[in-house]
Nucleic acid binder design. Sequence first.
DNA 1: TTTATTATTGCCGTTTTTTGCTTTATATTT
DNA 2: AAATATAAAGCAAAAAACGGCAATAATAAA
Lengths: 249, 249
Amino acid sequence: MLKEERHQTILSEVELHNRILLTDIAETLDVSIDTIRRDVKELDADNKLRKVHGGAISLGFTTNSTRNNNIYKLEEKSRIAGKAVALLKNGSVIFIDGGTTCLELARSIPLNLDLTCFTHSIPVAMELLNKPNVTVILVGGQVSKESQIAFGANAIHNLSEIKVDYSFIGTGYVDSHYGLTEFDWDIVQVKKAVIKCSKKTVLLSISEKLNSQHRYKTCDINAINTMITELDPEDDLLNSFKNHDIRIL
Amino acid sequence: MLKEERHQTILSEVELHNRILLTDIAETLDVSIDTIRRDVKELDADNKLRKVHGGAISLGFTTNSTRNNNIYKLEEKSRIAGKAVALLKNGSVIFIDGGTTCLELARSIPLNLDLTCFTHSIPVAMELLNKPNVTVILVGGQVSKESQIAFGANAIHNLSEIKVDYSFIGTGYVDSHYGLTEFDWDIVQVKKAVIKCSKKTVLLSISEKLNSQHRYKTCDINAINTMITELDPEDDLLNSFKNHDIRIL
DNA sequence: TTTATTATTGCCGTTTTTTGCTTTATATTT
DNA sequence: AAATATAAAGCAAAAAACGGCAATAATAAA
């Protein structure tokens, strides 16, 4: 059995169960515990997992419980993230917006996926640093205290100089007639710039936000190529979006 | 069951219920109370929770339990941060570098201080967002996985367009003769740009790093205006720096 | 092809870590 | 103050990690 094969097996086991015991793996793969120990040590050095006494744990399993438990409607958001991840291919160049739903997407990116990922969100950037195969590029600018994303002239200018395959964005409010709207004018400006710099725009939104609107408009609903909610695409709640040219997942 | 798993379980229980009893946890996880006691003791030492008689309580949201509290030589670094903060005045425009010492500085900024603060470090930016009177401006660019700072052409270009009153920088190695040096070439390039964009440069370094050197050079020791270590400025270890034109704090 | 070199793997003895138990000390409650 | 619960310190057994070593496999060089 090749070393590389073992590494793959170990990684997928870790991803699947969040943790493994060295003794278990050694028995499963029928090699000595020393070999497994060395394998895991290497994988740790490569930041693919975290080695602990007696075994290893997944990097994602850093149950930063404070955040995980405080996210509103986490269940729905991670469903959305799951669907979004399916759009990604090796080599994709993407942009990820701020907000808890997009953060969940960042968290869900598989460890073996090769990506170049732009973001103006500090928490998203933080999360992406845990992904060994993701190149992270930060869009700079003044940082908003509430939303923890860079905004303002500088951020918008930086965005004007890039073009990404997909951008994954969140929104404060969305309505099939009024489009995407926000409470904050500055945020609207950056979102516009994000949409402009992407070949395809994917909106991530929990169904609770559907049919709501606010003061400032980001874009028409037609500017969105794909919309992802936690609902089944055939759900009646999505009917009003179906006569637009949007893919619904 | 791995120790790490127990730690995670204990933490999430504490976050969930705000307080736990050691006996309860011991029974739940089916290990001896001594083991749990030791676990909780470690978690307390890492500032993940607070150990109390008979159990443990959550730190709550007040304390900055944001992350990684197992910083090497934290004591020294927060002494350094204390001295650095004394240089700041209302209205100052500063740059803060990455690294744990600079992070400690960011953490130590008093809540009532009005500042405009540039940084290319994600953890530093994260920390500064907690300061209501600090305007945070992120310097973008590709992000290094190990050092969690933006580097590369884009970051350097962005730095070339600003001028700050003070920059607070860390370094891998420092020597009175060879100046500031680093292990990583890319990092050196950004640091050069940082120094160039600041009226005054302040070096923060624990004394352990004095008289060490590495491959790539950031700058001569003369490029530094102020050097802060955890030592008394009169300490003999600093002698070799005294015949340079540096203020030592 | 044969030979030299390097990498990988299992084994073994030693050291470190972990854990439960016991004893003694300290805290809390009645 | 007495009774009870909890903490701390030390100890020993077991598990795991580490480092060196030698056999073998894989790779490069002659």
